[in-house]
Amino acid sequence: MPILTDIKEILTGLSITFSHIWRKPVTVQFPEEQRPMPPRFRGSIVLTRDPDGAERCVACYLCSGACPVDCISMAAAEGENGRRYAAWFRINFSRCILCGMCAEACPTLAIQMSPEMFRCKRQVMDMVYEKEDLLIDGTGKDPEYNYYRHAGIGVVQPRGSSPGEQEPADPRSLLP
């Protein structure tokens, strides 16, 4: 009987509807409530520190070079012990498309996409973040990595003492 089959179909559909009516809703009241996002979610951008607490960013300009919307600008400077750092570092989040190219380009793992959502602002200038706003007190992902331990230029340790390096050679010696 077709009418009985029709009723059965309708009731099956309605049973799903009713089961959903009595379920706990999945909607959260953003921004008061926030769901934890997966670790690889591309939320807002942060600048991290190395395990020794120093800034990881060496202002190499690779992130600003990779940025497809040109929202990153900075100026490099030389610190004590020949350390290269960003004198200022600015991300214009009103232009940023959160594509993650900067984090992918970063050779020192300084710039990272945090899983935290970026908040809306009422003033455009409030979306222009300076280094002070971006720098966090943590290593973010990859807590062990310190670029300068592998760079081989003697900033955090004497020259020739990085892993995989020989002692500095004596250029005056002619011994084999």
Binding site: G152, I153, R159, G160, G164, E165, Q166, P168, A169, P171
Partner: peptide, 20 residues
């Protein structure tokens, strides 16, 4: 194998030396 390294020299205020 390990990388050979050198000490740099001070070559004045205009040129930076990085022998590695």
């Amino acid at each position: 194998g390990k990388k050979r390294t050198f000490q740099n020299q001070y070559l004045g205020e205009r040129i930076h030396h990085e022998m590695n």
